[in-house]
Write a protein that binds this DNA or RNA. Structure first.
Lengths: 341, 341
DNA sequence: GCAGTCAATGCACACGTGTGCATAATGAGA
DNA sequence: TCTCATTATGCACACGTGTGCATTGACTGC
């Protein structure tokens, strides 16, 4: 049985109110008794009950985080950033993975509401607008990462996927590539669409054609799927000289697939990733990718949410609703001048 | 302001007790009123307050999970397993990363205690025994993954590091290797020690010597550190023909380091990983490693904790305190017959 | 028709903490 | 010495939910 302030009160010969005050706001209690109470609390191994406190104060000091998958290194690093900011602000994290499953999503949203989380960060690349609205209508401050449905949410941290994808595409074009394909992840909703758009816009601006067969989507982000997709691309009648991959994990698979198929990178095929996860530097050859400031994205998202919580009316005067964090192109070894043919 | 059972009671013309019962145990209230109450609750968008419920029932339905690093893919997959089991059992997760930092560790332990988590899973490869005792003495059911200090904890999920490391070493010896080095991560406490021991035992049994200089530790698990360590090994006067790495992330770095140094794997040097994280199959060459059932480890850990919570006296009669999950050797391309010299 | 049984519901208190208000104690000023 | 301001402390209620006990009403068996 855990020690309560009443136990301390009895032992110290005061009322529980005095104990409560002594342990929180010391200016309302004499310094002598405060000292004694603190000592008794220490001796008895007292730990305040966050549960009881939350009930009274209507603040749980907990942030809910919804993520597609915990084991995805991209989200892992964002989570790191979120954790650091949250911990610094005295908040703990409730983390749940939706696994792209609407049923789980529903469960998670429900849990967050029941647990009376102070706010929610949505990091899931696919998240149903319906559930988002549910969170909002329940009065949760919500910060969205990944630009997912930023129209309906007030605050979001936005890494410019369109721009990043454009930069990558321009890089390939500047190397001389004309036949460039796109490998997407159909489960990543808005994000894959944005990256596709950045790619298509630049191609169109450069008057380069992208046949339908050059846009290929797989269902998930596992490297294995990237590896398998190489077969698809090599079977095309006119083969692309470069593949823009939705993200690094797919690209890592593509690199392996090429190795198996005897395709040399970048001589026979250029490959690009996206996100700059740790492992993108350790393929052979290392991946040209777009470096997203993942840790900062997480930090900023949590910080924004904390600011939002401080501003009791839910509006921060001098902060833009959408914060854009710039990434930057990282040219490594997987891209090069296309071979003549 | 959230809807409470009192609001529902007023609207439905009954007492709040009846509402409470109707929404939980329906056999104590007439089916007609129960139906009506449920409907009113639905209309008003009622969400029970887990906070208030926890205060009364002294159960939070929350498990605390302490992990070294969220972004480490090894822990990521374990977390996945934990999440699935926990969610199936109706529990939510409080996740915190210790980052091998004793100060953070202390904060986390404190938070878990204050939040009145129903139980704790420790997945951190380094976790101070002092903080562990603190959790136990506060009355937390604790399940330990990673065999970290299993002496002091009652229940643990144990992946046999000594055995795994032995198998890997025997594999190398069977290929003809005699000069084998070990690359450890000094931050991983017990785990790196166990894997080192498995290695040394087998070497000793085979009458193979391991000079001190063949045992090298780096501070962390980042692939970069593995890559840099190649320089160390190549500077040795008599070079090893194989390196047993503490885990895959270090091995991935070693593979890259060898590529940069012009060392061919496995012709010039054999390299082994440990854990079989996703990316271990995508290096060039792919890594020979020891496959840990990470997902199952997480699942079993959470399940064990749930069982522990059901058994109110904290003892499960027919369950062994330590559950061993067997992994298995995975021979891929990074190991081969040593070249003559 | 009456005692006894049982289902349905309300009352009141509890969980641990925080806080407005009242009260007691102390000191200062006239 | 009396009044008033100030400080220290206790009392009592609140937060939202769960539950033992009492009460009420209806129904069963004789």
């Amino acid at each position: 049985m855990a020690v309560t302030i009443k136990d301390i009160a009895k032992r110290a010969g005061v009322s529980h109110s005095t104990v409560s005050r002594a342990l929180r706001v010391n200016h309302l209690v004499s310094s002598e008794t405060a000292r004694r109470i603190r000592q008794v609390a220490q001796e008895m191994g007292y730990r305040p009950s966050a549960v009881a406190r939350s009930l009274k104060t209507k603040r749980t000091q907990v942030l809910g985080v919804i993520v597609s998958s915990i084991s995805d290194p991209f989200f892992g690093e964002i989570l790191n950033g979120i954790e650091v900011s949250a911990q610094a602000g005295g908040y703990s994290l409730f983390i749940a993975a939706s696994q792209h499953d609407p049923v789980k999503e529903r469960q998670i949203v429900q849990t967050m509401m029941e647990q009376r989380t102070d706010g929610v960060i949505i990091c899931s690349s696919s998240f149903s607008p319906e559930h988002g609205r549910e969170l909002l209508s329940y009065g949760f401050p919500v910060v969205v990462v990944n630009h997912q449905g930023s129209e309906s949410f007030n605050y979001s941290i936005y890494h410019d996927d369109v721009d990043g994808s454009s930069q990558i595409t321009r890089h390939l074009i500047s190397l001389g590539h004309k036949r460039i394909a796109y490998l997407g992840n159909s489960q990543s909703g808005r994000t894959t669409q944005d990256r596709l758009r950045g790619f298509l816009d630049v191609m169109s601006d450069a008057n380069l054609e992208v046949p339908d067969s050059y846009i290929h989507h797989v269902e998930g982000g596992d490297p294995k799927l990237g590896q398998e997709s190489v077969e698809y691309f090599t079977r095309l009648s006119t083969k692309p000289t470069a593949i823009v991959c939705f993200n690094d994990t797919l690209a890592i698979g593509v690199v392996k697939g090429c190795e198996k198929a005897g395709l040399r990178i970048p001589d026979d095929l250029s490959v690009t990733g996206f996100d700059n996860i740790t492992y993108s530097a350790f393929t052979a050859p290392s991946l040209t990718t777009f470096d997203q400031p993942k840790f900062s994205i997480g930090q900023e998202a949590a910080q924004l949410l904390l600011d939002l919580l401080k501003a009791e009316d839910g509006i921060i005067p001098d902060t833009p609703n959408v914060k854009v964090l710039q990434g930057k192109l990282l040219v490594r070894e997987s891209t090069g001048i296309p071979s003549e043919d």
